[in-house]
């Protein structure tokens, strides 16, 4: 069926000749004011982000220097007996973590072929935002920020600055809305590990996506 025919029928059902040229007037847009006007300090945002993510089975490490970040990362990789690590091709992220990765088998997105990322033990990414209300990471994927880096391995580890944590989901969505022409083709909002309750309502973790979701939040950076 043709587009015009399809749309004209909808217009006719709405009692008009064709699609209106102007955008419809709106009384109500988005969330209620009591929701959008909440203000939290950075401390409160970080704590809320951590509490929510931990509640869902995620793991959060709060660190306040680059050295602490590297120690935390090193500990995670060691305790999980990780061997192969995939990572975004992102200079800032790589500078932060590379010294720790020297003793691991590392594949960088866009350098090694994409097929290599099928067999990673852990994927390291940054994140555009965190959301305190829900413990969510916002991963805007494109270019060196490949989707497979965090989707395919059993463990996903993200490095996030405390200042990137917003109070509510709407603030991250507002960013997308105000840069409509530059929006990446895939923006992934990730909250905790992959889960399902499809077998007798019994929760299982790591169904298709990662079974472990680890975030290192760096304060004062």
């Amino acid at each position: 069926m043709k587009r015009t025919e399809f749309l004209t029928r909808v217009s006719a059902r709405l009692g008009r000749n064709g699609v209106p040229g102007d955008s419809p007037a709106r009384d109500v847009v988005g969330v209620p004011e009591f929701w959008s006007q909440r203000e939290l300090s950075e401390r409160e945002r970080v704590d809320r982000f951590r509490d929510n993510l931990v509640n869902l089975g995620g793991e959060v490490h709060l660190v306040s220097s680059v050295d602490e970040l590297r120690d935390a990362l090193s500990e995670v990789l060691g305790s999980l007996r990780i061997m192969r690590v995939g990572i975004w091709n992102d200079r800032e992220l790589q500078e932060l973590v590379n010294p720790v990765l020297e003793s691991y088998e590392v594949s960088t997105w866009g350098i090694e072929p994409a097929s290599a990322f099928v067999d990673m033990d852990l994927g390291i990414t940054g994140a555009q935002f965190g959301v305190a209300d829900t413990g969510t990471l916002v991963l805007s994927c494109g270019g060196g920020r490949g989707r497979s880096v965090h989707l395919l391995p059993p463990v996903h580890l993200a490095v996030l600055r405390a200042s990137q944590i917003k109070t509510r989901l709407g603030e991250a969505l507002q960013e997308l809305s105000s840069h409509l022409t530059e929006i990446d083709s895939y923006v992934h909002f990730v909250t905790g590990p992959s889960r399902s309750s499809d077998i007798e309502n019994d929760q299982s973790i790591g169904v298709h996506g990662p079974a472990a979701e680890i975030v290192i939040v760096v304060e004062n950076l």
């Binding site: 929510n52 494109g142 270019g143 989707r147 992934h188």
Partner: peptide, 24 residues
């Protein structure tokens, strides 16, 4: 639906992969 404050994944897909993207 399930009493979750948000689902584990919310995926926002805008068109196909862009020039320079390796997957998608």
């Amino acid at each position: 639906a399930t009493g979750q404050s948000i689902t584990t994944y919310m995926s926002v897909i805008t068109g196909n992969r862009r020039r320079g993207d390796i997957d998608g």
